[in-house]
Design a protein around this nucleic acid. Structure first.
Lengths: 134, 134
DNA sequence: CTTGACTCTAGACCATGGTCCAGACTTTAG
DNA sequence: CTAAAGTCTGGACCATGGTCTAGAGTCAAG
């Protein structure tokens, strides 16, 4: 079992030292112990936990979401964890659909635009000025 | 052509009054005129523009992105407009790809999770706890 | 033991995207 | 005309997720 200082921990997890302390202030991660000097010491559990946080963040969870996930893992409430992941999945899928609509719109405009001539002939400009639905 | 006060405009676009003024401070939207009293007056063009901003924001564009999108319509060079639209298209495509990776990760985890039992059996928690390289 | 690297705390600062407030003035309905 | 509702400005304040600094103390190698 490794016994890491904050710098080593941060390096191994791929985050900044300040971020580790920031997470501590925000109740996401505490050192397993402190030296008499006050230096933080971390073990494998904390390294895992920090990597958990980093990954969950990469998956689009906010720090608050992650606090929730971490506390669920203590409660051993697998159903709730799955629910949270499903909700986040639905959210991500929704955002993809919206972006795909935008992408298709942009593609159509780019294809239709001659790239020269008068502004009134540019479908991109005309589209931005179009009438929208409330 | 409607001639709206800031409250009416905000209401019709579905945003708060303060948000309208905030957008003005940040060069996203100006009133078409002001009354002698200083009261802002908006026309249809501003209402459209504000709705455009709202929708673009809902799609995950930052206000700076939106400033860029909106400035396309001021651009007199059709070639530049087309270029900017192409850049934004590439940007959108990139964002879609990132979200798709996130989506696939979440899907895999959700499928693999039984939704009950001990935490140690939950692949969502286990995956986030996995020991991979930073 | 000394020196350089590391860590401590508290608090300031950053960007983003708002949101709210006070105190004064304007507009509008009755 | 009066009162209520709306708007004005400037500045303070909020949450999120950090990032940086100062000044002091600690640890580890030579």
């Amino acid at each position: 079992m490794s016994n890491l200082g904050i710098g080593q921990l941060a390096k191994r997890a791929g985050v900044a030292i300040d971020t580790v302390r920031y997470y501590e202030r925000n109740n996401l991660l505490s050192p397993s112990t402190r030296l008499a000097s006050g230096y933080r010491r971390y073990g494998d559990a904390e390294l895992k936990r920090l990597r958990f946080i980093r990954r969950a963040k990469a998956l689009g969870f906010t720090l608050e979401d992650i606090r929730g996930l971490l506390s669920l893992s203590n409660e051993r409430s697998v159903a709730k964890v799955k629910q949270a992941a499903e909700a986040k999945l639905a959210d991500v899928e929704h955002r993809i659909e919206e972006l795909e609509r935008i992408r298709d719109g942009l593609r159509t405009l780019v294809k239709a635009c001659p790239g020269h001539g008068r502004a009134e002939a540019c479908p991109i400009l005309n589209s931005l000025n179009a009438e929208d639905v409330p």
